[in-house]
Structures are given as C-alpha cells and as structure tokens.
Amino acid sequence: MVERVLIIDDEENIRQMIRLTLEASAYEVGEAEDGIEAFAILGGDPSWNVILLDQRMPMMEGTEVLPVGCNRHTLRLSP
C-alpha cells in the first residue's frame, strides 16, 4: 500500500520540492495551499498517513490547523 503524504504550505516552490523529493521515494503526495484547502482535501478521508504542515502561513496559522487534524491523524511538525 502506497503511503500518502499531504503537504500544507503557502510556498508553491517548497511544496513542489517536497513533492519531487517524496515522489522520488515513491510516496503519493497531495498539496494544500492553506488550512481551509487542507480541510477540504482531508474531509472525512482517513487514508492520509502523513501531513507536512508549515507553521507560518496567511489566512490560518499552522498552530490553528493542528488541533483540527489532531483528532484523526498522527502528525509531525516541520517548520
């Protein structure tokens, strides 16, 4: 089964680099530009294994996104 990683970062280049790096290691990668989009993607889908969450973002800080996702996912922080 392929590991699914969701990247939440407002910087497109960062998302792209992380996606390329992970895809080189055969991960399935999803991207979200901010917390709102992330919630839309996550929805009720429990199949995401890892979420990479940026802390400093417009609209919604990483620390605000975190408690929402905490309910169903094991998360690792990355600045």
Binding site: E11, I14, M17, I18, L20
Partner: peptide, 8 residues
C-alpha cells in the same frame, strides 16, 4: 523559505 527550496 526560498533558500530551503533551493537547498532541496
């Protein structure tokens, strides 16, 4: 931030 992407 841009440096990180360059580094990666």
């Amino acid at each position: 931030t841009p440096l990180t992407s360059v580094q990666m």
